[in-house]
Design a protein around this nucleic acid. Structure first.
Length: 719
DNA sequence: CTAGGGTTAG
C-alpha cells in the first residue's frame, strides 16, 4: 500500500506542470492564464489525471480539466474524457462525472465500472443500479469489477429482490467464485439481515481471506447475533487464518453486545501489547463502547483521557455513552470541553447532547445548542430536527417543539412520533390524536412505536374512546402486532379512567403474557380508585413475577398507607429490601444562571438553604391562610401528623421552587424536573403557590408535565 | 478500478 502511494507521488511530481502550483482555481477554463501554459501531450495529461484520481485531489484535477479544455485536447479524445469521468467519479463529484460520461460515445467497461462505483460509494445506490441496467442495455457485459459495486448498491438500497437476481447472474456467469464478488455478497446479505444466506455463500466459498471472515463476524454482530460471531472467530482460529485490526473491531462489538468486560479487557491488553503492529486509532473507539456497555465508567474515562488521538467519533462515543447511561452532566461537560479543545462536532454529537439535555431538562443549554446549530450552518436534517423537537418537548417548551416540527420539511415516522408523544406528556391528548390522523393522511404507515406514543397520549388525558378506536384499527389495518407496551398503555388508559373491570378483562384476554409493567399500571389505577381488593390481586401477580421495578412496591405501600395498614406497609418494605431494591431519594432539578441545580429530599447542602427554608415557612403560612390542609396520605411512615407534615415540606420540588422564587423576578416561569412522581400534597401546594405568587410553574415528573397557573394544573388533577 | 470498521432521535 505504502509502495503504491509513494510511486504515485513520484509520478505526480515528475509530470507536474508549473501553472498548477499557482493560486488554486476553483472553476474551469476562464481562470487559466494562457501565457503560463506549457504544452502537455494527452498521454501526459492522462498520466497526471490517473495519479490525481488515485489520491482524490479534486482542485488540482479541476485545474487540469481546465487546461485540457483550453489546450483543445478534449475534442474527440475518448482516452482523456474517460479518465476525466473516472476522476470526478472517484472524487465523488457525480454530476460532473455524469456530464462527461454522457458525452462519451464509446463507453468501455472501465468507464461503466468507475461510474457505478462512484454512485455506489457516494451514497447513491439507486443511480448505481440504474446505470447497471443501462449498461446491459448497451450490450456491455458485467465483469468481476462490476459485481462488487452493484452488489454493494443493492445492500445499501436494501433491494433484496434485485440483490438476489444479481447474485444469480453472478453465479450464472461464473463470477461468484471471485473472492471480491463473494465478499460483497456476504456484506450484502448481512445488510439484508439474512445471515442464513450469507452463511451459505460463505460455506461454499472455495477460498476465503481475512475480509471474508471479518465480514461474517461483523455481519453477525450487526444482526444481534454475538454468539454466532464468536463461533466464526473460533472457526477462523482453527483454520489457521490470521486476523487483523478489523477482526478485533468485530470482536470488540461482540464484547459490547454481550457486556463481556473480561474479554474486552483482554483485547484491550492485546491491543496495547501490539500497538506498533496494529492501527490503534480504530480500536479505541469500539473499546469505549465495550466499557460503556459494561457500565465501567472508571475504565472508560481512564481510557479516554489516555487516548492521544481523539477524533469526532471518540468524543461522540463518550458523549452519547454518558447520555445513554444517565450521566447527563458528564455528557454535557464533555461536550463543552470538546468545543473548547477545538474538536469538530457533527450531527451525532448534537443528537447525543440533546438527549442529555432531555434527561435533566436543561432547556437553556438545549436552546444554546439549537442556536449553535443555526449559526454554524448545520442545516437541520430530519434527524437533528427530531432530536430538537424531543428536547423541547421534554424540557417543557412545547411551543418551540411545535415550531421546529412545522419547519421540518421532510418528516419521517419518528419525527411525527416524537411530536405526538410531546403532546401526550403535556396532557394535550386531543392534539396528539389529531396529529396522529394527520400523519396517516400524509401516507406515513404507523408502526408499533408511534402507536405507543399516541396510546400513551390518550391515557394521559383519559381519552378512552379515541384510544380504544386507535388501538383496534391500527393493529388490524396496518398489521401491527400489539406488544406489551400497547397493552400497558391500554390498561393505564382504562384503569385510570375508572374502568377497572374492563382493564382487568383486557389483561386476562390479551394474547401475550402480561408483564410486571402491566400489573404495575393496573396497581396504580387501583390506588387512584382506592380499590384495595383489586389492588391485592394485581400486587400478588406483580410479586409472582419477581419484578424489579421499585414503582410497583412504592405504589402498593401507598395503597396500604392510605388505609393505615402499617403492618402491610412494613411487609412490602421488607420484601423490597429482600430483593435488594431501594426507593431512590426524591430529587429535583432546576436550571438557573447557566447551571443545573440539584435538590435532594431534605437537602441541606445548598449554599442558600437557610433562605430557602425561610421562604418555605412563609409559603406554608400563606397557604394555610387560604385554607390549605396538608394531605399526609403519601407519607409512608407511621408517625404523628406533625412529623408527617414537616416531612412533606422537605420534598425536593418545594426546595427547588423556593430557590427559584428567591432568585428570580416576578414574571419568570419556574421550570423544575423531578425524578419521581409528584405526590398529591405537593401537587396541591404547587397549585396554590402558582396562585398566590402569580407565577407559572412548569414541572416534569417521571411520567408527564404539569403546567401550574393561577391555582390550576394542566393535568386537571388527572395523573 | 475491485470487498470489511466505530458514534445516530420515538
Amino acid at each position: 500500500m505504502d509502495g503504491v502511494l509513494s510511486l504515485n507521488r513520484k509520478l505526480f511530481k515528475h509530470h507536474w506542470p508549473p501553472f498548477l502550483n499557482k493560486t488554486p482555481f476553483t472553476t474551469h477554463a476562464h481562470f487559466v492564464d494562457k501565457s503560463l501554459l506549457q504544452p502537455l501531450s494527452s498521454l501526459q495529461c492522462g498520466a497526471i489525471l490517473q495519479s490525481l484520481t488515485n489520491i482524490k485531489w479534486l482542485t488540482k484535477g479541476q485545474q487540469l480539466h481546465a487546461y485540457i479544455i483550453v489546450s483543445g485536447n478534449i475534442q474527440n479524445n475518448t482516452y482523456l474524457t474517460t479518465k476525466l469521468a473516472a476522476f470526478y467519479a472517484n472524487c465523488g463529484h457525480m454530476t460532473d462525472a455524469q456530464v462527461i460520461f454522457d458525452g462519451i460515445v464509446l463507453k468501455n467497461s472501465f468507464l461503466w465500472n468507475f461510474m457505478i462505483r462512484g454512485y455506489a460509494c457516494n451514497g447513491l445506490p439507486v443511480k448505481a443500479l440504474v446505470l447497471y441496467q443501462q449498461m446491459s442495455c448497451f450490450g456491455q457485459k458485467a465483469d468481476k469489477f462490476t459485481y462488487p459495486f452493484v452488489i454493494k448498491a443493492c445492500g445499501d438500497f436494501l433491494n433484496v429482490e434485485m440483490g438476489r437476481r444479481i447474485h444469480g447472474e453472478a453465479v450464472h456467469s461464473g463470477f461468484d467464485s471471485d473472492i471480491y464478488v463473494a465478499n460483497s455478497l456476504l456484506a450484502m446479505y448481512s445488510k439484508f439481515g439474512d445471515m442464513w444466506t450469507a452463511r451459505m455463500v460463505f460455506d461454499r466459498m472455495p477460498v476465503r481471506d481475512i475480509t471474508s471472515w471479518n465480514t461474517m463476524i461483523s455481519g453477525y454482530v450487526k444482526n444481534g447475533k454475538p454468539k454466532e460471531a464468536l463461533t466464526i472467530f473460533y472457526l477462523m482460529k482453527q483454520t489457521g487464518s490470521s486476523s487483523d485490526g478489523m477482526t478485533l473491531v468485530g470482536l470488540l462489538c461482540t464484547c459490547a453486545d454481550l457486556a463481556a468486560l473480561k474479554q474486552g479487557k483482554e483485547i484491550h491488553g492485546y491491543v496495547i501489547r501490539n500497538r506498533y503492529a496494529l492501527c490503534m486509532d480504530f480500536l479505541m473507539n469500539p473499546l469505549i463502547e465495550v466499557y460503556f456497555k459494561c457500565n465501567s465508567m472508571v475504565y472508560v474515562r481512564r481510557l479516554f483521557e489516555k487516548m492521544a488521538w481523539k477524533d469526532t467519533v471518540s468524543w461522540n462515543s463518550m458523549i452519547s455513552g454518558y447520555a445513554r447511561n444517565n450521566y447527563a452532566f458528564e455528557s454535557l461537560s464533555l461536550f463543552c470541553r470538546m468545543i473548547q479543545e477545538g474538536a469538530k462536532p457533527d450531527q451525532v454529537t448534537f443528537i447525543s447532547v440533546l438527549v442529555a439535555c432531555d434527561q435533566i431538562t436543561a432547556l437553556q443549554f438545549g436552546m444554546s445548542v439549537h442556536s449553535y446549530l443555526v449559526k454554524n450552518g448545520f442545516g437541520a436534517t430530519t434527524v437533528v430536527a427530531t432530536a430538537l423537537i424531543d428536547m423541547y418537548a421534554k424540557c417543557g417548551n412545547l411551543a418551540c417543539a411545535r415550531r421546529v416540527f412545522c419547519e421540518t420539511p421532510e418528516k419521517n415516522l419518528i419525527c411525527w412520533s416524537v411530536m405526538i408523544s410531546g403532546y401526550g406528556i403535556h396532557g394535550m391528548g386531543r392534539e396528539a390524536v389529531s396529529l396522529f390522523h394527520e400523519m396517516i393522511k400524509n401516507n406515513i404507515i404507523p408502526d408499533e412505536g408511534v402507536l405507543t406514543s399516541v396510546l400513551s397520549a390518550c391515557s394521559h388525558t383519559g381519552l378512552v374512546a379515541e384510544g380504544k378506536e386507535i388501538f383496534y384499527t391500527v393493529t388490524k389495518d396496518y398489521d401491527v402486532e400489539p406488544v406489551l407496551a400497547h397493552y400497558s398503555c391500554m390498561v393505564d388508559l382504562l384503569g385510570r379512567a375508572g374502568h377497572l373491570d374492563e382493564a382487568y378483562k383486557l389483561i386476562q384476554t390479551m394474547e401475550i403474557n402480561p408483564s410486571s409493567d402491566i400489573w404495575a399500571a393496573f396497581l396504580n389505577a387501583c390506588r387512584l380508585h382506592r380499590n384495595v381488593e383489586m389492588a391485592e390481586i394485581s400486587a400478588q401477580n406483580f410479586f409472582d413475577m419477581n419484578a424489579k421495578q421499585v414503582g410497583g412496591y412504592i405504589c402498593l405501600s401507598n395503597i396500604y398507607a392510605a388505609e393505615k395498614r402499617w403492618d402491610d406497609v412494613e411487609r412490602v418494605r421488607t420484601l423490597m429490601r429482600e430483593k435488594g431494591l431501594t426507593k431512590p431519594p426524591g430529587c429535583s432539578f432546576v436550571e438557573f444562571d447557566k447551571m443545573v441545580h440539584q435538590f435532594l429530599v431534605g437537602d441541606k447542602s445548598h449554599p442558600q438553604i437557610e433562605d430557602i427554608y425561610a421562604k418555605l415557612r412563609q409559603l406554608n403560612h400563606l397557604l394555610k391562610e387560604v385554607g390549605y390542609k396538608p394531605d399526609t396520605s403519601s407519607v409512608l411512615y407511621n408517625v404523628d401528623e406533625e412529623t408527617k407534615e414537616n416531612m412533606l415540606w422537605d420534598h425536593s420540588e418545594r426546595l427547588a421552587i423556593a430557590f427559584v422564587l428567591i432568585n428570580t423576578g416576578p414574571n419568570t416561569i419556574i421550570r423544575i424536573t423531578k425524578n419521581l412522581r409528584v405526590c398529591r400534597d405537593c401537587h396541591t401546594v404547587i397549585k396554590l403557590i402558582s396562585k398566590i405568587t402569580c407565577r407559572e410553574i412548569i414541572m416534569r415528573d417521571i411520567r408527564r408535565f404539569h403546567h401550574f397557573r393561577d391555582g390550576f394544573c394542566s393535568c386537571g388533577d388527572y395523573w
